[in-house]
């Protein structure tokens, strides 16, 4: 299903990223991290808060440069993909422009890329994320979950080769979050874009991803890689199986090793 022998979609080779703080000290967010995302693969990134997950994503998007090591996207520098408008991204804080309507927000990437707006594609995405009827609404008139869906539609509108999602559902309650997971999995199944998802939620990672990568606490480092055994398309019922629960426990244990002492 996933071809990992060809040039990977995202390739991290021994990447270290340090920040210089205002007081002159340096803070190392990531140290000697290597990982890759294959073409058409969905990888979820788990890790404790502050371990460098967002930093890793920003390196892929070319928003930061590595202190050492190399980041390649489709075998090239991230900036080239950005210049070609081949990268889709959705942030935790949704980053919708408040003065634009839902439709205009989703059309924005076309305008920035200087391409004619493909109206049917925009409408198709609006329908896909379940926002038909809200095309003319402004972000503040939407619920948190609806805003996240607009951001996801926007990230997909140019049919990107790489999709980056940074805790896209972080601000949602558990029930809405699960609904959004089901919808994202449906949307993703239709396009199969190489995707890197950052999340705090173990269940979300297991339900959505082909592979789950766990980072250690700061400075971040890959401590575990897990191939998710569930076949696609995945029905939400998979989350009720014993195997799913067992994997959740396993990953939680990796994330918070001390918690498991009493088991």
């Amino acid at each position: 299903m996933t071809d990992r022998t060809a040039a990977p979609a995202i390739d991290f080779r021994g990447v270290t990223k340090s920040f210089r703080l205002p007081d002159g000290k340096t803070l190392t967010a990531l140290t000697d991290t290597s990982l890759s995302v294959g073409k058409g693969e969905f990888v979820a990134l788990l890790g404790p808060s502050g371990c460098g997950k967002s930093t890793l994503l920003r390196l892929v998007a070319g928003l930061e440069a590595p202190s050492s090591g190399a980041v390649a996207v489709e075998g090239r520098a991230p900036e080239e993909l950005v210049k070609a408008h081949r990268l889709g991204i959705a942030f935790q804080e949704h980053a919708l422009l408040p003065w634009l309507t839902v439709r205009q927000n989703i059309e924005l990437p076309f305008r920035i890329a200087g391409r004619p707006v493909m109206r049917e594609r925009v409408q198709g995405l609006i329908n896909l994320v379940g926002l038909a009827g809200f095309e003319a609404a402004r972000p503040k008139q939407l619920s948190g979950g609806m805003r996240q869906r607009v951001a996801i539609a926007r990230s997909l509108v140019l049919e990107p080769e790489i999709l980056l999602l940074d805790e896209p559902f972080g601000a949602l309650d558990a029930v809405t979050r699960r609904q959004m997971n089901v919808e994202l999995q449906r949307i993703w199944s239709e396009s199969r874009i190489s995707t890197l998802l950052v999340t705090h939620a173990v269940e979300e990672a297991l339900f959505l991803a082909d592979r789950v990568i766990v980072l250690s606490g700061r400075p971040g480092k890959v401590v575990r890689t897990l191939e998710v055994p569930f076949a696609r398309p995945r029905h939400p019922d998979v989350m009720r199986t014993a195997q799913f629960h067992q994997l959740v426990d396993e990953l939680t244990e990796t994330l918070h090793p001390t918690d498991g002492a009493g088991h």
């Binding site: 928003l63 950005v82 980053a95 920035i112 890329a113």
Partner: peptide, 18 residues
């Protein structure tokens, strides 16, 4: 700027006038 929008425009590859 709205939260996150500056990064968003970088990822879009937006030029200065855009």
């Amino acid at each position: 700027l709205p939260a996150g929008s500056a990064d968003l425009f970088s990822v879009f590859g937006a030029k200065k006038h855009q």
